[in-house]
């Protein structure tokens, strides 16, 4: 099947593609993942800490702690990691974490950035998987190394200079996904706030797409605008926002993975709000 068709694959994991692999939707349901695991037709990636993985993980999962990926997330290095995990170009990947999906989102985005489009987030965290009584195992998994090509998907990446150049362009929307009080304190000028806490629902790392779509509509964000997400430091919260926006139907979403931490370090302009003592509302 052509790559073009691959892109437009439906949300259901039913359209067989290269080598008999399915094309995954943005979010993979637990049922779907269990089916794929039984068929041995998926690579499950556990991005929790190594010691958590060693205790227990989803069957067939390999371990890739986010911290390890972030040590060097240059595209070449990421491709090397994919190869070591035995992941070939079109093999479906499902990523999960135990941090409301944010760590998984950052890893999934990185895979897609280096060209592994067929990557999905598991709909729930590992704790939720366990609380449903779904299968786990303790044995570590290793697979024979595979070949993976590098096809950088620059469309989904933004850096500080890109954000600076987008200033004043109304069709480019900057989304800060940190919590409200952090946003109020300081943020990149012109940014809108969609706190990551808005994105999840009970039992799922992301809400129903219709709800997410409504949140965008409420804010007057057209689905065909270009949206750039960022958060506090390494692009985890904004990674989750990236997928939430995709799920809501946004076509052109970019992640600024180095986020506000880099922006500040570079001495770029900030918008601050100091006329209210909102931090004193905290009960902690």
């Amino acid at each position: 099947m052509s790559k073009q068709k691959n892109r437009s694959a439906s949300k259901q994991a039913n359209s067989d593609t290269n080598q008999g692999y399915v094309q995954l939707p943005i979010v993979c349901t637990a049922d779907n993942l269990r089916m794929l695991i039984r068929k041995r037709a998926v690579r499950v990636v556990d991005v929790r800490r190594q010691e958590d993985y060693q205790k227990e993980h989803i069957p067939t999962a390999v371990s890739l702690p986010l911290a390890k990926l972030l040590q060097d997330d240059s595209p070449e290095k990421v491709v090397e990691i994919l190869e070591k995990l035995g992941i070939s170009d079109s093999m479906p990947i499902v990523v999960y974490d135990d941090t409301f999906g944010a760590l998984a989102a950052r890893v999934a985005w990185t895979f897609q950035y280096v060209g592994h489009e067929n990557t999905a987030l598991l709909e729930m965290t590992f704790s939720q998987w366990k609380s449903l009584g779904l299968e786990t195992e303790t044995k570590p998994n290793e697979f024979p190394a595979a070949n993976h090509s590098l096809r950088l998907n620059k469309e989904i990446f933004a850096d500080a200079s890109y954000i600076e150049s987008a200033k004043g362009q109304t069709d480019k929307i900057l989304i800060d996904s940190r919590e409200r009080l952090n946003f109020l304190t300081e943020h990149i000028p012109e940014a809108m706030n969609i706190p990551y806490t808005m994105l999840r629902s009970n039992g799922s790392i992301l809400r129903d797409p219709a709800e997410l779509k409504r949140f965008m509509e409420n804010r007057g964000i057209p689905v065909d605008s270009e949206i750039i997400t960022y958060c506090g430091s390494v692009g985890t919260l904004s990674g989750l926002a990236y997928y939430a926006l995709k799920l809501a139907g946004a076509k052109n979403v970019k992640l600024y993975p180095k986020s506000f931490k880099e922006w500040k370090a570079l001495g770029k302009p900030k918008e601050e709000f100091k006329d209210a003592n909102y931090w004193d509302l905290s009960a902690e």
């Binding site: 919590e179 409200r180 806490t197 409420n218 007057g220 909102y278 509302l281 009960a283």
Partner: peptide, 29 residues
């Protein structure tokens, strides 16, 4: 309060419970 406000709620002196710093666009939610 977690999703749309600041993660805490506030009991008022007239038996209301208040949520602060809700973005106007999220009030309906």
């Amino acid at each position: 309060s977690e999703a749309f406000s600041i993660g805490s709620a506030h009991v008022s002196t007239r038996q209301n419970i208040q949520l602060h710093w809700v973005q106007l666009e999220d009030v309906s939610e």
